[in-house]
């Protein structure tokens, strides 16, 4: 499923590039500038670490709840 999703995304992006050349992607283009300047400061590495921790908790909850 994960591979299928990845391949579908790539196919969609390629198709969009062919059909609407030099056009920004809706929504995503306005979100991506957020990442301009990210990692300019060391704080982002710490935030990334905390996010890994938060996702570890979410993953643990999902894994524990579905393990049986």
């Amino acid at each position: 499923m994960l591979v299928m999703g990845f391949v579908s995304t790539i196919v969609f992006l390629v198709l969009y590039g062919i059909l609407f050349p030099s056009s920004d992607l809706p929504v995503i283009s306005s979100v991506l500038p957020v990442f301009d300047g990210v990692f300019d400061s060391g704080i982002w590495f710490f935030i990334l670490g905390a996010l890994i921790g938060i996702f570890a908790i979410l993953g643990t909850m999902l894994a524990e709840a579905t393990s049986e």
Partner: peptide, 26 residues
């Protein structure tokens, strides 16, 4: 977790006020 993380960010910004400037895009 969010309490400590937000406090950590507050402490960090006290010496580096521009550290999270990229969030202005949001």
């Amino acid at each position: 977790i969010p309490a400590s993380l937000v406090t950590f960010c507050g402490l960090w910004l006290s010496h580096d006020p521009q550290a999270l400037h990229s969030l202005t895009a949001w």
